[in-house]
Amino acid sequence: MMWVIEMIVLIMVVITAIGAITVKDLLGAAILFGAYSFMLCLLWAIMGAVDVAFTEASVGAGISTVLFVAAVFRTSRRTRD
């Protein structure tokens, strides 16, 4: 049963990664990147790397998203690709 959850999370990781680089709005890209980091956090909790999982949840999904959102608000949301 565990491999079904792992496969779903792996597919979600790929979907959010492709979404983060294709969306035409930098704030949306930042939020999708946060979702990508959180999916990776779930994946590492499933794979037994709990220390990496909570470091990723706090640093990857937390601080990185805050830094991206702060940088986008200080610059511009506009992008052409």
């Binding site: 680089i21 990147f33 990776l40 990857g60 990185s64 940088a71 052409r80 690709d81």
Partner: peptide, 17 residues
């Protein structure tokens, strides 16, 4: 391939993860 600098940084983070 991306032209936007923030998109490039997102790509670099995806590569690292």
């Amino acid at each position: 391939a991306k032209n936007n600098l923030v998109k490039k940084v997102v790509g670099m983070n995806i590569l690292q993860t």
